[in-house]
């Protein structure tokens, strides 16, 4: 009976624990239920300082959402930190990594498989639209930051 009650409640409201994903721009517009579905494919991982996340030429499968710590990329001068997404450009640009990512400090990340994310987006097009809008916003913001640094 408790399971049935929990389910009825969950139809309208999912626990607050999933709302943490909204700090990432690409998931900002997702509803609590969509975040709950997303939670099914999110893996939490930790990297020590100087540990390599991936290298140029590796197959592209996972995008990393940084919860804590700093990561450097070989193709940009600055470091990438908290609440940023790593591998977003690669996700749309091809099957191989275009850069090497190394943890500068101890890093905690959410890792999401591209295949799982695409499958989820295909299964729920509305959720897919929201994530795509979020991705566009994130990429535009990255481009603006890069331009500002160049000037």
């Amino acid at each position: 009976m408790k399971s049935i009650y929990d389910w009825l409640i969950s139809l309208f409201h999912k626990p607050q624990m999933y709302l943490g994903y909204r700090v990432f721009r690409i998931f900002q517009e997702l509803s609590s239920y969509e975040l709950y579905l997303l939670h099914g494919i999110v893996h939490q991982r930790s990297f020590k300082a100087n540990e390599v996340l991936y290298e140029t030429g590796y197959p592209m499968e996972v995008i990393y959402l940084i919860i804590e710590g700093e990561i450097s990329l070989n193709d940009v001068e600055h470091q990438i930190g908290k609440d940023k997404v790593l591998g977003l450009w690669d996700m749309f640009s091809g099957a191989k990594r275009n850069s090497t990512a190394i943890a500068q400090t101890d890093v905690s990340v959410y890792a999401i498989s591209r295949s799982d994310l695409m499958e989820l987006m295909e299964a729920r097009p509305r959720l897919g639209m929201k994530i795509l809008q979020g991705c566009c916003a994130e990429i535009v913001q990255d481009a603006l930051i890069l331009r500002a640094r160049e000037h």
Binding site: R45, L53, S113, D116
Partner: peptide, 13 residues
């Protein structure tokens, strides 16, 4: 391990 994580995901998929 982190070294094999992405490979494991690809294989599992």
């Amino acid at each position: 391990s982190n070294r094999y994580f992405e490979l494991s995901i690809i294989l599992l998929s």
